[in-house]
Amino acid sequence: MSDDVERPLLRVRGLTRWYGPQVGCLDVGFDLWPGEVLGVVGESGSGKTTVLGCLSGRVVPTAGTVEFTTREGLGVDVLRLSEAERRRLARTDWGVVHQNPRDGLRMGVTAGANVGERLMALGARHYGAIREAALDWLGQVEIDTGRIDDLPETFSGGMQQRLQIARNLVTRPRLVFMDEPTGGLDVSVQARLLDLLRTLVAYLGLSAIVVTHDLAVTRLLAHRLLVMRRGQVVESGLTDQVLDDPQHPYTQLLVSSVLQP
């Protein structure tokens, strides 16, 4: 049904979340298209993490709508899904890359099991085939395949992050949420990871929403950008445009305070 009508992958309108008298986020809206990466930037307290929480289902928004287009081309109201449906979506069509890889991995099981879990949950029953898929994905995220039977405990921070990415991508999700994906990593490790992400996003045609305080990350990954301050979007547009020619005083402040290489 859907191939003719171009629908955004994700349509968000009026997303609002109050924490008592404090605003988490207020009236946030945007469209996200297939293959597009949206950056959400701001300082801590800007509401960017709240937005991510509302979208990924971790937090229940006070108001607003979130509509996701399924593989079959149907629009689905994410906030009205049953727990079962939402969890199924989260395991197949979505991915979540946490800032701290420990939150997105099973630290006590091998790398291979971490990557293979989603496949097994969906009915994969051939040990050899699951292992092959795991090896393949470890290769794609540039982890030495010889480490398939090692525990994530023994991996470096950068490797753990790449493992987390592999674990998510194995079901070829169409939308990935990332929360400070390079936070806590060395600069050189960050660069390598960003490069990998950029390649994978392009190669797999992923859409992503990347929440970060780091403008350099957005510059490298995001096509478009939302700038948030105190829960509200103060500026949005193409990344290069917003960063090279900021209109809003806050954006100007953010941009100017980044150290120039």
């Binding site: 199924r88 099981v109 091998t110």
Partner: peptide
């Protein structure tokens, strides 16, 4: 919840680990 949603991935992970 895992039973209700037929989310048995964790059990399969355990079997995979045993075989590994």
């Amino acid at each position: 919840t895992m039973h209700a949603l037929e989310e048995y991935g964790a059990m399969w992970v355990r079997l995979y680990e045993d075989i590994t």
